[in-house]
Design a protein around this nucleic acid. Structure first.
Length: 610
DNA sequence: GCTTTGTGCCAC
DNA sequence: AAACGTGGCACAAAGC
């Protein structure tokens, strides 16, 4: 059953539970059956409190509904704040985005109709205003290019809480009608089961993302501060360098015989000084400096490393991002073209190893950290139905398994070769072992090669569940046509060739990275459902309801999760997370014998995992 | 003064 | 100036 939520104007009459409490009307709730058909029940108009009550009742039933709404971030954060958790939903915005371009539903009304308000909806951060992008006039090119509205303009609008172009956040958007259009697109697609799974997984991801933001990642400010003080020295006064950095700056100047005025933060100045000193570096990149034998290299590399910690994850980072012992970022579901998530705020998906020490479980609780071992090559094996490659992964370490087949001699070669195959690497060891991998695993290697050829022609590729890659942009088209004709510049042909190959590397990687993201979505969907069924904790953690006494997800990075769990439940959580991985594998690949083993660690601090 | 671009490093 | 995919982010310099 779908319960469809639609925002209501303030003057609508309230008919739902608790009509006397809360503020004005919030939404109309309509009941639809599984096939999105509306029954005889009229819409119920409820207040904010009424909605929480209604959700509570519906979620307590034996078969909770699928909440269907325009945007999870518009509805769910307030429900979580009210202590309510929902089992499943359909995020119409995210689903629309997938269906609009999926090659599996290319003939649907949804895909063939002109862009609507649903195409203009953008990610809205938790607590932020709903944001509508600018739809360009139909006669212009690139109808779907919502990024056409300059990013800065959209961000200004977002900060002010004002949707750009005067569009009401949901002007004319009818979720009941949209759901019907989506269901028709799925049902009439060439793979309804896969698309339905993808939409469910994407929507479950939206729930998990909102929940992780709500709960936050447990963060010990005191531990982080200790790490910083130990590495950089005491927190400096504003405008001053930490003392370790200052000391290194002195050593850098001495090694270069440079004046005290040399500022190591200025690349041009530093490069000039290095040139005078005859260091022989053309850039300040770490990999280049590491190859150079000169007294400045050691203090300079050290300086760069500490400077990075100081600027990216130093005291100001702590001030800005950690509140009440929790780090909260804005997860952007589907924020990456491939379907991976991105995150905005605090560099959440790039937490350096060094500061993970500060991620610590609350007293009486633990962190269960799990990551999928060699996820992408395993996904490729499933995607290509390559039984030989799948068998190589049966033992737990797929790279060791590849060595055991005799295809390559060392684990390192297997790893670099596979990564090269999936990224399009051609040089070094990666290029060397590729022919042998192709001979050993023709199906898997053939799949990525085909994906690359398609991209080189400017074509689109589609993941296992149906997410389709975008077409190359105008610049790409221009590069290709630029190489034609007699008057073409001499380097036009090479530009055309290199951009064609670059797009081939993108599509080559898209199918693997995108399908891995789908596996991961299914994994977290299963994890959150399973965790909710575990017993509650005797001792609550320091976070908010509804997760204060429940094991819950607190972090997710592509192929890795962190669960904050009552210590007594650690084993149960580890088991559920492993079973969820098996479940995800079956959901995607059915009986095909590809396995998805995990590395699981129960720790007090994130730094102790792995 | 502001915004944009270039550089470089972190994560998977 | 990276080879080889996807991102976020901070800072200095350049551009307006």
């Amino acid at each position: 059953m779908h319960l469809v939520l639609a925002a209501q104007p303030a003057d609508a009459a309230v008919t739902g539970p608790d009509p006397g409490s809360g503020s004005g009307p919030v939404c109309a709730v309509r009941v639809l059956d599984e096939r999105a058909r509306q029954g005889p029940t009229p819409a119920e108009v409820v207040t904010r409190d009424g909605l929480a009550t209604l959700v509570h009742e519906a979620e307590s039933s034996t078969s909770p509904p699928r909440w269907t709404w325009d945007d999870t971030n518009r509805w769910y954060p307030a429900l979580l704040t009210a202590g309510e958790r929902v089992e499943r939903c359909r995020d119409l915005r995210l689903a629309h985005r997938i269906l609009r371009v999926s090659s599996l539903a290319a003939t649907s009304d949804l895909a063939t109709s002109s862009p609507s308000g649903w195409d203009a909806l953008e990610h809205s951060p938790v607590g932020g205003a709903a944001v509508v992008g600018v739809l360009r006039a139909p006669q212009e090119e690139s109808l779907f290019d919502l990024a056409a509205a300059p990013r800065a303009e959209r961000e200004r609008a977002r900060e002010k809480g004002v949707p750009p172009s005067g569009a009401g956040a949901d002007a004319g958007l009818d979720p009941v009608a949209e759901l019907a259009v989506q269901e028709a697109a799925v049902t009439g697609s060439t793979a309804p089961g896969r698309l339905r799974l993808l939409l469910a997984a994407e929507s479950a991801g939206a729930l998990a993302a909102a929940e992780m933001h709500h709960a936050g990642l447990p963060w010990r400010t005191d531990v982080h501060d200790a790490v910083l003080t130990e590495t950089l020295g005491p927190r400096p006064a504003p405008g001053r360098r930490p003392e370790r950095l200052e000391a290194l700056a002195v050593r850098i100047r001495a090694a270069l015989d440079a004046p005290d005025s040399l500022n190591p933060d200025s690349h041009p100045d530093l490069l000039r000084a290095m040139e005078y000193a005859g260091v022989g570096a053309r850039s300040l990149r770490k990999w280049e400096l590491e190859r150079i034998d000169h007294p400045v290299v050691e203090p300079l590399l050290e300086y760069k490393s500490l400077y990075r910690l100081y600027t990216a994850n130093g005291w100001s980072w702590l001030d800005q991002w950690v509140r009440d012992g929790r780090f909260r970022t804005d997860y952007v579901v589907g924020g990456v073209v491939t379907g991976r998530w991105s995150a905005s705020g605090g560099g959440a998906l790039q937490l350096p190893r060094g500061v993970r020490r500060a991620v610590q479980a609350d007293p009486g609780w633990v962190l269960v950290v799990a990551d999928a071992a060699q996820l992408e090559p395993r996904v490729l094996a499933g995607l290509a139905a390559d039984e030989t490659m799948a068998a190589a992964g049966a033992g737990g370490d797929m790279y060791a398994g590849i060595v055991a087949t005799g295809a390559v001699e060392t684990r390192e070669h297997a790893k670099v070769g596979m990564l090269g195959a999936m990224y399009g690497g051609t040089t070094g060891v990666s290029g060397q072992v590729l022919p042998r991998l192709s001979r050993a695993f023709p199906r898997a290697m053939g799949l990525v090669e085909d994906a690359a050829r398609t991209g080189e022609r400017g074509g689109s590729v589609t993941t296992w569940l149906g997410r389709t890659s975008p077409p190359p942009g105008q610049a790409w088209d221009a590069a290709q046509s630029g190489a034609l004709g007699d008057g073409a510049p001499a380097d036009a042909a090479s530009l055309a060739r290199s951009s064609a190959r670059a797009w081939g590397r993108f599509t080559r990687n898209f199918v693997v990275q995108g399908t891995a993201a789908e596996w991961a979505l299914c994994w977290i969907a299963a994890i959150r459902r399973r965790l909710w069924r575990l017993p509650t904790a005797a001792q609550p953690n320091h976070g908010p309801a509804p997760f204060a006494d429940r094991a819950h997800l607190v972090f997710f990075v592509h192929d890795e999760v962190v669960v904050h769990a009552p210590a007594a439940l650690a084993e149960d959580v580890a088991r559920e997370v492993r079973e969820a991985a098996e479940e995800a594998g079956r959901l995607l690949f059915g009986d095909f014998p590809v396995s998805f083993p995990l590395t699981v660690a129960t720790v007090d601090s994130y730094a102790d995992a792995k």
